[in-house]
Amino acid sequence: MAEKILPKPNSLMPLSICRSDILPKKDDTMFGNIPIGKVQKGGRKNAVADLRSFLNHRSRHYLYHISAPDLSEFYCSRLSAHLAWGTLSVREVAQSIVKRRSQLSPDEKKSLGRNLTAFGSRLAWRCHFVQKIEDQPEIETHCMHPAFEGLRVNEHNEAHFQAWENIPFNMFTCHVQKAEN
């Protein structure tokens, strides 16, 4: 990750024998309903803007809000699509994290530094799982450990589901209260 980022090529060699069907538009019925709310914009300029916005502002509360559905839209990195489509490279993001950390004051290192470290860790785990699925594509449809194959043969048991659904909520809160006493 520390190696030099390669410069943008001046041009790309087109593939002369590549043929494709016409790509459907984003609002084609094959994609289902039109997304409600904001749709993230793609492209290199937006990728760089999203990275800068995250490193300079949105990452300040990353750890506290990343798992909160109502706040994660703002505090998460918003870089997944850019990494998947190649408008940003993992190396570029990793080096940007290191550079941003080096710019922090001692006070910022305590809070913002911790958030950037956590994000860097998630970035590394993303790479790990991308490599895992490349090396073992069967884990998409089979258990990683053979002992667990067949565990969910009966996908849905209505009687078990009803029993679970009818557990009184206060049963759990009472248990927690007793444990605290």
Score class of each variant (00 low, 15 high):
Thr29Met: 04
Trp125Lys: 08
Lys8Pro: 15
Cys76Arg: 03
Ile167Ser: 01
Val93Ala: 04
Leu151Ser: 05
Lys38Asp: 14
Ala147Met: 12
Leu112Arg: 15
Gln162Gly: 00
Lys178Cys: 12
Lys41Asp: 10
Glu73Val: 13
Val93Arg: 03
Lys38Arg: 10
Thr117Lys: 08
Pro35Val: 04
Leu123Glu: 05
Ser67Asp: 09
Leu116Lys: 13
Leu151Cys: 04
Asp70Phe: 10
Ser80Gln: 12
Lys25Arg: 08
Lys25His: 11
Ser121Lys: 11
Asp21Cys: 02
Asn46Asp: 13
Lys109Phe: 12
Ser16Met: 12
Cys143Pro: 11
Glu134Leu: 07
Phe119Asp: 02
Met13Leu: 12
Leu151Val: 10
His61Gly: 04
Arg91Gln: 10
Glu149Asp: 14
Trp85Asn: 09
Arg44Gly: 02
Met1Leu: 07
Arg60Pro: 01
Ser80His: 11
Asp21Leu: 08
His128Thr: 15
Arg60Ser: 04
Lys25Thr: 14
Tyr75Asp: 07
Asp28Trp: 04
Val98Ala: 08
Phe129Ile: 10
Glu149Arg: 11
Ala179Lys: 06
Pro9His: 00
Leu104Val: 14
Asp50Ile: 02
Leu23Trp: 06
Ala118His: 13
Ile97Arg: 08
Leu63Met: 08
Thr87Asn: 01
Trp125Asp: 10
Asp27Phe: 15
Pro69Tyr: 00
Asp135Arg: 02
Pro14Tyr: 03
Glu158Trp: 10
Met13Arg: 13
Arg100Gly: 07
His61Trp: 09
Leu23Pro: 09
Leu63Asp: 05
Asn154Ser: 09
His57Gln: 00
Ser67Thr: 09
Arg52Cys: 03
Ser77Trp: 06
Ala2Val: 15
Ser72Pro: 14
Asp107Glu: 12
Val48Met: 05
Leu63Cys: 07
His175Ala: 07
Glu134Gln: 11
Val153Asn: 08
Trp85Ala: 00
Glu155Met: 01
Trp85Ser: 05
Arg91His: 03
Ser67Glu: 06
His175Gly: 02
Met30Tyr: 05
Ser121Pro: 06
Gln95Arg: 06
Leu116Gly: 14
Leu23His: 03
Met144Leu: 09
Trp164Thr: 14
Val176Ser: 10
Ile17Asn: 15
Trp85Gln: 05
Ser16Gly: 10
Ile34Asp: 00
Ile139Gly: 10
Pro69Ile: 01
Ala49His: 15
Lys178Ile: 15
Ala2His: 14
Gln131Met: 06
Arg126His: 11
Arg100Ile: 10
Asn166Asp: 11
Lys132His: 13
Val93Trp: 05
Val90Cys: 08
Val48Pro: 08
Thr141Asp: 12
Ser20Pro: 02
Ile139Ser: 07
Gly43His: 08
Asp28Lys: 03
Arg19Ile: 06
Phe172Ala: 00
Gln103Tyr: 07
Ala163Ser: 14
Ala147Lys: 12
Ile17Pro: 06
Gln131Thr: 14
Arg91Trp: 05
Cys143Val: 09
Leu6Ile: 04
Ala94Trp: 13
Val48Thr: 08
Pro7Arg: 01
Ser59Trp: 10
Asp50Ser: 11
Leu88Trp: 11
Phe54Arg: 03
Asn46Gly: 04
Ala118Ser: 12
Ala118Asn: 11
Phe54His: 02
Arg152Pro: 02
Pro7Ala: 00
Glu180Val: 05
Phe74His: 12
Pro168Arg: 01
Cys76Glu: 02
Ser72Phe: 12
Glu3Ile: 04
Ala47Leu: 02
Ser77Val: 07
Lys109Ala: 13
Thr173Ile: 13
Phe119Ala: 03
Lys132Gly: 05
Pro7Asn: 00
